[in-house]
Write a protein that binds this DNA or RNA. Structure first.
Lengths: 209, 209
DNA sequence: CAGTTGTGCGTACATGTGTACGCTGAAATC
DNA sequence: GATTTCAGCGTACACATGTACGCACAACTG
Protein backbone atom coordinates (compact mmCIF):
# COMPACT_ATOMS: atom_id res chain seq x y z
CA UNK A 1 0.00 0.00 0.00
CA UNK A 2 1.52 3.24 -1.16
CA UNK A 3 0.68 5.91 1.36
CA UNK A 4 1.80 8.78 -0.80
CA UNK A 5 -0.34 7.93 -3.77
CA UNK A 6 -3.26 6.63 -1.81
CA UNK A 7 -3.73 10.14 -0.55
CA UNK A 8 -5.34 11.37 -3.69
CA UNK A 9 -8.54 9.43 -3.33
CA UNK A 10 -8.96 9.88 0.38
CA UNK A 11 -8.13 13.50 -0.10
CA UNK A 12 -10.83 13.89 -2.69
CA UNK A 13 -13.34 12.28 -0.40
CA UNK A 14 -12.30 14.49 2.46
CA UNK A 15 -12.80 17.51 0.25
CA UNK A 16 -16.33 16.57 -0.69
CA UNK A 17 -17.11 15.88 2.91
CA UNK A 18 -15.86 19.32 3.75
CA UNK A 19 -17.93 20.80 0.95
CA UNK A 20 -21.01 19.21 2.47
CA UNK A 21 -20.23 20.69 5.84
CA UNK A 22 -19.54 24.09 4.31
CA UNK A 23 -22.78 23.92 2.38
CA UNK A 24 -24.72 23.22 5.55
CA UNK A 25 -22.88 25.96 7.40
CA UNK A 26 -23.73 28.44 4.67
CA UNK A 27 -27.39 27.53 4.76
CA UNK A 28 -27.39 27.84 8.54
CA UNK A 29 -25.65 31.19 8.36
CA UNK A 30 -28.44 32.57 6.24
CA UNK A 31 -30.76 31.99 9.14
CA UNK A 32 -32.25 28.57 8.53
CA UNK A 33 -32.57 26.25 11.47
CA UNK A 34 -30.77 22.94 11.08
CA UNK A 35 -33.81 20.74 10.97
CA UNK A 36 -35.26 22.60 8.03
CA UNK A 37 -32.23 21.70 5.95
CA UNK A 38 -32.91 18.81 3.64
CA UNK A 39 -30.43 16.27 2.52
CA UNK A 40 -31.17 17.08 -1.09
CA UNK A 41 -30.67 20.77 -0.56
CA UNK A 42 -27.32 20.37 1.12
CA UNK A 43 -26.20 17.91 -1.53
CA UNK A 44 -27.16 20.33 -4.29
CA UNK A 45 -25.30 23.17 -2.58
CA UNK A 46 -22.24 20.98 -2.27
CA UNK A 47 -22.50 20.10 -5.95
CA UNK A 48 -23.14 16.39 -5.64
CA UNK A 49 -26.09 14.15 -6.35
CA UNK A 50 -28.50 13.55 -3.47
CA UNK A 51 -27.67 9.88 -3.27
CA UNK A 52 -23.95 10.57 -3.05
CA UNK A 53 -24.57 12.17 0.31
CA UNK A 54 -24.63 8.73 1.86
CA UNK A 55 -21.03 8.11 0.90
CA UNK A 56 -20.08 10.67 3.54
CA UNK A 57 -22.74 10.70 6.23
CA UNK A 58 -25.27 8.15 7.28
CA UNK A 59 -27.79 10.82 7.98
CA UNK A 60 -28.38 14.53 8.24
CA UNK A 61 -27.88 13.93 11.92
CA UNK A 62 -24.42 12.63 11.15
CA UNK A 63 -23.62 15.84 9.33
CA UNK A 64 -24.93 17.90 12.21
CA UNK A 65 -22.83 16.09 14.75
CA UNK A 66 -19.76 16.55 12.59
CA UNK A 67 -20.45 20.28 12.46
CA UNK A 68 -20.78 20.58 16.22
CA UNK A 69 -17.65 18.58 16.83
CA UNK A 70 -15.62 20.66 14.43
CA UNK A 71 -16.79 23.81 16.12
CA UNK A 72 -15.80 22.46 19.51
CA UNK A 73 -12.23 21.93 18.46
CA UNK A 74 -11.87 25.36 16.95
CA UNK A 75 -13.36 26.97 20.04
CA UNK A 76 -11.07 25.43 22.61
CA UNK A 77 -8.12 26.51 20.52
CA UNK A 78 -9.41 30.02 20.37
CA UNK A 79 -10.02 30.32 24.07
CA UNK A 80 -6.54 29.17 24.93
CA UNK A 81 -4.96 31.52 22.46
CA UNK A 82 -6.77 34.43 24.04
CA UNK A 83 -5.46 33.52 27.48
CA UNK A 84 -1.89 33.25 26.35
CA UNK A 85 -1.72 36.54 24.58
CA UNK A 86 -3.50 38.44 27.30
CA UNK A 87 -1.90 39.23 30.61
CA UNK A 88 -3.29 40.13 34.03
CA UNK A 89 -6.70 40.83 35.48
CA UNK A 90 -9.54 42.74 34.04
CA UNK A 91 -8.46 43.31 30.48
CA UNK A 92 -8.93 39.59 29.99
CA UNK A 93 -12.67 39.99 30.24
CA UNK A 94 -12.67 42.54 27.47
CA UNK A 95 -10.37 40.48 25.30
CA UNK A 96 -12.51 37.37 25.76
CA UNK A 97 -15.71 39.17 24.93
CA UNK A 98 -14.34 40.73 21.80
CA UNK A 99 -12.60 37.63 20.53
CA UNK A 100 -15.53 35.37 21.15
CA UNK A 101 -17.94 37.77 19.51
CA UNK A 102 -15.71 37.81 16.46
CA UNK A 103 -15.60 34.05 16.41
CA UNK A 104 -19.36 33.79 16.64
CA UNK A 105 -19.63 36.29 13.82
CA UNK A 106 -17.46 34.16 11.61
CA UNK A 107 -19.36 31.00 12.43
CA UNK A 108 -22.85 32.33 12.73
CA UNK A 109 -24.66 29.30 11.46
CA UNK A 110 -23.09 26.69 13.67
CA UNK A 111 -22.99 28.93 16.73
CA UNK A 112 -26.67 29.55 16.41
CA UNK A 113 -27.37 25.91 15.83
CA UNK A 114 -25.48 24.88 18.93
CA UNK A 115 -27.35 27.32 21.12
CA UNK A 116 -30.68 26.30 19.66
CA UNK A 117 -30.00 22.62 20.03
CA UNK A 118 -29.02 23.09 23.63
CA UNK A 119 -32.65 23.92 24.28
CA UNK A 120 -34.03 20.91 22.45
CA UNK A 121 -35.13 17.85 24.33
CA UNK A 122 -32.84 14.87 24.74
CA UNK A 123 -31.15 14.20 21.42
CA UNK A 124 -27.71 13.57 20.05
CA UNK A 125 -27.40 17.24 19.16
CA UNK A 126 -28.40 18.40 22.57
CA UNK A 127 -25.86 16.11 24.17
CA UNK A 128 -23.08 17.23 21.87
CA UNK A 129 -23.88 20.90 22.38
CA UNK A 130 -24.10 20.52 26.14
CA UNK A 131 -20.81 18.72 26.22
CA UNK A 132 -19.14 21.44 24.21
CA UNK A 133 -20.30 24.21 26.51
CA UNK A 134 -19.51 22.13 29.58
CA UNK A 135 -15.94 21.77 28.37
CA UNK A 136 -15.57 25.49 27.90
CA UNK A 137 -17.14 26.12 31.27
CA UNK A 138 -14.86 23.65 33.06
CA UNK A 139 -11.88 25.20 31.35
CA UNK A 140 -12.91 28.66 32.47
CA UNK A 141 -13.53 27.41 36.01
CA UNK A 142 -9.94 26.27 36.27
CA UNK A 143 -8.77 29.62 35.09
CA UNK A 144 -10.95 31.52 37.54
CA UNK A 145 -9.64 29.45 40.43
CA UNK A 146 -6.08 29.93 39.35
CA UNK A 147 -6.55 33.63 38.78
CA UNK A 148 -8.22 34.21 42.14
CA UNK A 149 -5.40 32.42 43.92
CA UNK A 150 -2.91 34.43 41.91
CA UNK A 151 -4.48 37.70 42.99
CA UNK A 152 -5.01 36.48 46.53
CA UNK A 153 -8.74 37.15 46.28
CA UNK A 154 -11.31 34.69 47.62
CA UNK A 155 -13.77 33.55 44.99
CA UNK A 156 -17.02 31.74 45.64
CA UNK A 157 -18.64 29.14 43.37
CA UNK A 158 -16.27 29.47 40.42
CA UNK A 159 -18.15 26.75 38.47
CA UNK A 160 -21.33 28.75 38.60
CA UNK A 161 -19.62 31.97 37.62
CA UNK A 162 -18.00 30.15 34.69
CA UNK A 163 -21.32 28.69 33.67
CA UNK A 164 -22.95 32.09 33.66
CA UNK A 165 -20.10 33.60 31.70
CA UNK A 166 -20.11 31.02 28.93
CA UNK A 167 -23.87 31.22 28.60
CA UNK A 168 -23.89 35.00 28.39
CA UNK A 169 -21.07 35.18 25.90
CA UNK A 170 -22.77 32.87 23.43
CA UNK A 171 -26.27 34.10 23.86
CA UNK A 172 -25.46 37.75 23.43
CA UNK A 173 -22.87 37.00 20.79
CA UNK A 174 -25.55 35.46 18.64
CA UNK A 175 -28.19 38.03 19.47
CA UNK A 176 -25.74 40.70 18.40
CA UNK A 177 -25.39 39.35 14.89
CA UNK A 178 -28.50 41.20 13.83
CA UNK A 179 -27.87 44.29 15.89
CA UNK A 180 -27.36 47.49 13.90
CA UNK A 181 -23.75 48.56 14.08
CA UNK A 182 -24.44 51.73 16.02
CA UNK A 183 -25.78 49.75 18.95
CA UNK A 184 -23.05 47.19 19.07
CA UNK A 185 -20.51 49.09 21.06
CA UNK A 186 -23.10 49.70 23.70
CA UNK A 187 -23.99 46.03 23.76
CA UNK A 188 -20.37 45.01 24.12
CA UNK A 189 -19.96 47.40 27.05
CA UNK A 190 -23.11 46.06 28.66
CA UNK A 191 -21.86 42.52 28.31
CA UNK A 192 -18.58 43.45 29.94
CA UNK A 193 -20.42 45.11 32.79
CA UNK A 194 -22.55 42.03 33.25
CA UNK A 195 -19.49 39.83 33.48
CA UNK A 196 -17.85 42.20 35.96
CA UNK A 197 -21.02 42.10 37.99
CA UNK A 198 -20.82 38.34 38.18
CA UNK A 199 -17.16 38.36 39.15
CA UNK A 200 -17.77 40.97 41.80
CA UNK A 201 -20.65 38.95 43.14
CA UNK A 202 -18.57 35.81 43.36
CA UNK A 203 -15.92 37.70 45.32
CA UNK A 204 -18.47 39.34 47.58
CA UNK A 205 -20.07 36.01 48.38
CA UNK A 206 -16.71 34.62 49.38
CA UNK A 207 -16.04 37.47 51.79
CA UNK A 208 -19.23 37.47 53.80
CA UNK A 209 -20.41 33.90 54.01
CA UNK B 1 -77.11 42.92 15.13
CA UNK B 2 -78.05 40.76 18.05
CA UNK B 3 -75.02 40.43 20.24
CA UNK B 4 -76.35 37.61 22.38
CA UNK B 5 -77.20 35.25 19.58
CA UNK B 6 -74.29 36.15 17.36
CA UNK B 7 -72.02 34.68 20.00
CA UNK B 8 -72.54 31.12 18.99
CA UNK B 9 -70.79 31.32 15.67
CA UNK B 10 -67.95 33.49 16.82
CA UNK B 11 -67.60 31.25 19.79
CA UNK B 12 -67.30 28.19 17.63
CA UNK B 13 -64.68 29.87 15.54
CA UNK B 14 -62.79 30.93 18.61
CA UNK B 15 -62.83 27.35 19.81
CA UNK B 16 -61.37 25.98 16.60
CA UNK B 17 -58.76 28.67 16.65
CA UNK B 18 -57.87 27.62 20.14
CA UNK B 19 -57.75 24.00 19.10
CA UNK B 20 -55.24 24.92 16.42
CA UNK B 21 -53.09 26.71 18.95
CA UNK B 22 -53.34 23.81 21.37
CA UNK B 23 -52.44 21.37 18.64
CA UNK B 24 -49.32 23.35 17.80
CA UNK B 25 -48.42 23.68 21.46
CA UNK B 26 -48.73 19.92 21.91
CA UNK B 27 -46.50 19.21 18.95
CA UNK B 28 -43.97 21.71 20.24
CA UNK B 29 -44.08 20.19 23.70
CA UNK B 30 -43.07 16.84 22.30
CA UNK B 31 -39.82 18.41 21.21
CA UNK B 32 -40.43 19.52 17.65
CA UNK B 33 -39.13 22.89 16.63
CA UNK B 34 -41.74 25.26 15.33
CA UNK B 35 -40.54 25.42 11.77
CA UNK B 36 -40.77 21.68 11.33
CA UNK B 37 -44.48 21.84 12.04
CA UNK B 38 -46.52 21.68 8.88
CA UNK B 39 -49.83 23.33 8.32
CA UNK B 40 -51.36 20.00 7.42
CA UNK B 41 -50.08 18.33 10.53
CA UNK B 42 -51.41 20.99 12.85
CA UNK B 43 -54.75 20.99 11.06
CA UNK B 44 -55.02 17.24 11.40
CA UNK B 45 -54.18 17.40 15.10
CA UNK B 46 -56.84 20.05 15.56
CA UNK B 47 -59.33 17.89 13.73
CA UNK B 48 -60.00 20.12 10.74
CA UNK B 49 -59.22 19.90 7.05
CA UNK B 50 -55.93 21.41 5.91
CA UNK B 51 -57.64 24.07 3.87
CA UNK B 52 -59.79 25.18 6.79
CA UNK B 53 -56.64 26.36 8.50
CA UNK B 54 -56.79 29.54 6.44
CA UNK B 55 -60.07 30.53 8.03
CA UNK B 56 -58.13 31.20 11.23
CA UNK B 57 -54.60 32.12 10.32
CA UNK B 58 -53.09 33.49 7.17
CA UNK B 59 -49.99 31.45 7.69
CA UNK B 60 -48.12 29.19 10.04
CA UNK B 61 -46.30 32.35 10.98
CA UNK B 62 -49.61 33.84 12.04
CA UNK B 63 -50.21 30.88 14.32
CA UNK B 64 -46.75 31.21 15.78
CA UNK B 65 -47.19 34.88 16.57
CA UNK B 66 -50.50 34.17 18.24
CA UNK B 67 -48.80 31.56 20.40
CA UNK B 68 -46.06 33.92 21.49
CA UNK B 69 -48.49 36.70 22.24
CA UNK B 70 -50.70 34.47 24.34
CA UNK B 71 -47.70 33.32 26.31
CA UNK B 72 -46.66 36.89 26.97
CA UNK B 73 -49.96 37.73 28.59
CA UNK B 74 -49.96 34.70 30.82
CA UNK B 75 -46.38 35.39 31.88
CA UNK B 76 -46.84 38.96 33.01
CA UNK B 77 -49.81 37.87 35.09
CA UNK B 78 -47.78 35.16 36.70
CA UNK B 79 -44.87 37.39 37.58
CA UNK B 80 -47.09 39.94 39.24
CA UNK B 81 -48.92 37.31 41.22
CA UNK B 82 -45.62 36.02 42.59
CA UNK B 83 -44.63 39.48 43.77
CA UNK B 84 -47.87 40.09 45.55
CA UNK B 85 -47.99 36.90 47.49
CA UNK B 86 -44.35 37.03 48.48
CA UNK B 87 -43.03 39.44 51.04
CA UNK B 88 -39.56 40.82 51.77
CA UNK B 89 -36.09 40.24 50.47
CA UNK B 90 -34.41 37.01 49.63
CA UNK B 91 -37.27 34.57 49.66
CA UNK B 92 -38.53 36.32 46.58
CA UNK B 93 -35.69 34.93 44.54
CA UNK B 94 -36.56 31.42 45.55
CA UNK B 95 -40.25 31.95 44.93
CA UNK B 96 -39.60 33.41 41.48
CA UNK B 97 -37.33 30.59 40.47
CA UNK B 98 -39.72 27.91 41.57
CA UNK B 99 -42.81 29.50 40.12
CA UNK B 100 -41.23 30.28 36.80
CA UNK B 101 -39.80 26.82 36.48
CA UNK B 102 -43.26 25.43 37.07
CA UNK B 103 -44.68 27.70 34.45
CA UNK B 104 -42.08 26.70 31.92
CA UNK B 105 -42.82 23.09 32.71
CA UNK B 106 -46.48 23.57 31.97
CA UNK B 107 -45.79 25.40 28.74
CA UNK B 108 -42.76 23.56 27.53
CA UNK B 109 -43.42 23.88 23.85
CA UNK B 110 -43.98 27.59 23.64
CA UNK B 111 -41.29 28.42 26.17
CA UNK B 112 -38.78 26.50 24.15
CA UNK B 113 -39.97 28.05 20.95
CA UNK B 114 -39.61 31.56 22.33
CA UNK B 115 -36.07 30.96 23.48
CA UNK B 116 -35.11 29.37 20.20
CA UNK B 117 -36.63 32.11 18.11
CA UNK B 118 -34.81 34.72 20.11
CA UNK B 119 -31.65 33.38 18.54
CA UNK B 120 -32.95 33.42 14.99
CA UNK B 121 -32.10 36.24 12.67
CA UNK B 122 -34.41 39.14 12.14
CA UNK B 123 -37.93 37.81 11.80
CA UNK B 124 -41.37 38.44 13.17
CA UNK B 125 -40.86 35.69 15.72
CA UNK B 126 -37.58 37.05 16.89
CA UNK B 127 -39.09 40.48 17.35
CA UNK B 128 -42.05 39.16 19.27
CA UNK B 129 -39.89 37.00 21.50
CA UNK B 130 -37.46 39.82 22.18
CA UNK B 131 -40.27 42.14 23.03
CA UNK B 132 -41.75 39.66 25.47
CA UNK B 133 -38.51 39.19 27.34
CA UNK B 134 -37.80 42.91 27.27
CA UNK B 135 -41.13 43.54 28.94
CA UNK B 136 -40.38 41.07 31.68
CA UNK B 137 -36.94 42.52 32.10
CA UNK B 138 -38.20 46.10 32.34
CA UNK B 139 -40.75 45.01 34.86
CA UNK B 140 -38.12 43.32 36.97
CA UNK B 141 -35.87 46.38 36.70
CA UNK B 142 -38.54 48.52 38.27
CA UNK B 143 -38.90 46.07 41.07
CA UNK B 144 -35.16 45.88 41.73
CA UNK B 145 -34.93 49.66 41.92
CA UNK B 146 -37.90 49.85 44.26
CA UNK B 147 -36.62 47.02 46.41
CA UNK B 148 -33.11 48.47 46.71
CA UNK B 149 -34.52 51.82 47.78
CA UNK B 150 -36.79 50.05 50.25
CA UNK B 151 -33.88 48.26 51.83
CA UNK B 152 -31.67 51.33 51.65
CA UNK B 153 -29.07 49.42 49.66
CA UNK B 154 -27.33 50.96 46.65
CA UNK B 155 -27.77 48.92 43.49
CA UNK B 156 -25.77 49.34 40.32
CA UNK B 157 -27.04 48.74 36.76
CA UNK B 158 -30.43 47.28 37.67
CA UNK B 159 -31.39 46.88 33.99
CA UNK B 160 -28.42 44.63 33.38
CA UNK B 161 -29.08 42.59 36.48
CA UNK B 162 -32.70 42.18 35.40
CA UNK B 163 -31.63 41.17 31.93
CA UNK B 164 -29.33 38.51 33.28
CA UNK B 165 -31.99 37.23 35.63
CA UNK B 166 -34.66 36.82 33.00
CA UNK B 167 -32.25 35.13 30.64
CA UNK B 168 -31.04 32.68 33.24
CA UNK B 169 -34.48 31.80 34.46
CA UNK B 170 -35.74 30.85 31.03
CA UNK B 171 -32.65 29.16 29.77
CA UNK B 172 -32.18 26.94 32.78
CA UNK B 173 -35.91 26.42 33.14
CA UNK B 174 -36.00 24.88 29.71
CA UNK B 175 -32.77 22.97 30.07
CA UNK B 176 -34.18 21.46 33.25
CA UNK B 177 -37.15 19.93 31.51
CA UNK B 178 -35.08 16.94 30.51
CA UNK B 179 -33.07 16.74 33.69
CA UNK B 180 -33.54 13.57 35.73
CA UNK B 181 -35.50 14.33 38.86
CA UNK B 182 -32.66 13.54 41.24
CA UNK B 183 -30.57 16.35 39.78
CA UNK B 184 -33.27 18.96 39.75
CA UNK B 185 -33.04 20.10 43.32
CA UNK B 186 -29.38 20.69 42.84
CA UNK B 187 -30.03 22.64 39.67
CA UNK B 188 -32.61 24.81 41.39
CA UNK B 189 -30.17 25.58 44.18
CA UNK B 190 -27.48 26.42 41.67
CA UNK B 191 -29.80 28.77 39.87
CA UNK B 192 -30.65 30.50 43.10
CA UNK B 193 -26.98 30.87 43.92
CA UNK B 194 -26.35 32.33 40.47
CA UNK B 195 -29.04 34.91 40.96
CA UNK B 196 -27.74 35.80 44.40
CA UNK B 197 -24.31 36.18 42.88
CA UNK B 198 -25.64 38.68 40.40
CA UNK B 199 -27.50 40.66 43.04
CA UNK B 200 -24.47 40.72 45.26
CA UNK B 201 -22.35 41.90 42.36
CA UNK B 202 -24.73 44.70 41.55
CA UNK B 203 -24.60 45.86 45.14
CA UNK B 204 -20.85 45.58 45.34
CA UNK B 205 -20.42 47.61 42.16
CA UNK B 206 -22.55 50.35 43.64
CA UNK B 207 -20.44 50.54 46.78
CA UNK B 208 -16.98 50.83 45.31
CA UNK B 209 -17.32 52.66 42.07
C1' DC C 1 -89.09 33.73 5.63
C1' DA C 2 -85.74 34.88 1.85
C1' DG C 3 -81.05 36.21 1.42
C1' DT C 4 -76.40 36.60 2.83
C1' DT C 5 -72.30 35.18 5.22
C1' DG C 6 -68.72 32.32 6.35
C1' DT C 7 -66.77 27.84 8.50
C1' DG C 8 -65.49 23.66 6.96
C1' DC C 9 -64.79 20.11 3.37
C1' DG C 10 -62.98 17.34 -0.78
C1' DT C 11 -60.45 17.34 -4.85
C1' DA C 12 -56.51 18.44 -7.44
C1' DC C 13 -51.84 19.79 -8.66
C1' DA C 14 -47.11 21.07 -8.72
C1' DT C 15 -43.23 20.56 -6.03
C1' DG C 16 -40.00 18.74 -2.45
C1' DT C 17 -38.66 14.86 0.35
C1' DG C 18 -35.70 10.37 1.81
C1' DT C 19 -33.81 6.56 -0.08
C1' DA C 20 -33.45 1.82 -2.72
C1' DC C 21 -31.11 -0.01 -6.76
C1' DG C 22 -27.81 -0.63 -10.21
C1' DC C 23 -24.38 1.37 -13.29
C1' DT C 24 -19.92 3.84 -14.48
C1' DG C 25 -15.15 4.92 -14.59
C1' DA C 26 -11.13 6.04 -12.47
C1' DA C 27 -8.04 5.16 -8.72
C1' DA C 28 -5.80 1.61 -5.89
C1' DT C 29 -4.03 -2.91 -5.46
C1' DC C 30 -1.85 -7.07 -6.69
C1' DG D 1 -1.87 -5.52 -17.13
C1' DA D 2 -5.73 -7.73 -14.74
C1' DT D 3 -8.68 -7.14 -10.83
C1' DT D 4 -10.86 -4.94 -7.07
C1' DT D 5 -12.67 -0.93 -4.75
C1' DC D 6 -15.64 2.83 -4.28
C1' DA D 7 -17.19 8.01 -4.97
C1' DG D 8 -20.61 9.72 -7.66
C1' DC D 9 -24.65 9.48 -10.79
C1' DG D 10 -29.48 8.76 -12.74
C1' DT D 11 -33.75 6.69 -12.32
C1' DA D 12 -37.63 5.51 -9.73
C1' DC D 13 -41.02 5.36 -6.00
C1' DA D 14 -43.98 6.42 -2.27
C1' DC D 15 -44.79 9.70 0.31
C1' DA D 16 -45.76 14.87 2.51
C1' DT D 17 -46.25 19.62 1.64
C1' DG D 18 -48.77 24.41 0.57
C1' DT D 19 -52.56 26.09 -1.50
C1' DA D 20 -56.13 27.19 -5.43
C1' DC D 21 -60.94 26.26 -6.37
C1' DG D 22 -65.64 25.48 -5.65
C1' DC D 23 -69.42 23.32 -3.04
C1' DA D 24 -72.33 22.47 1.19
C1' DC D 25 -75.01 23.80 4.80
C1' DA D 26 -75.68 25.95 9.13
C1' DA D 27 -75.81 30.41 11.40
C1' DC D 28 -76.92 34.99 11.01
C1' DT D 29 -79.36 39.21 8.98
C1' DG D 30 -83.00 42.12 7.37
Amino acid sequence: MNLLLSVSRKQQKEETRQRLMDAAATALASGRSFDTLSLREVAKLAGIAPTSFYRHFHDMEGLGLALIEAQGDSLLDLVHRVREQTSGGTSLIRASVETLFDHVGEHQGISRMIQQERLSPESAFRDAADKLLATLSADLTDFLVWDAKERGVPFSHPELAADLTVGILFTTGIAMLDTPADQRERQVEDTITKLRMIMRGAEAMAHAK
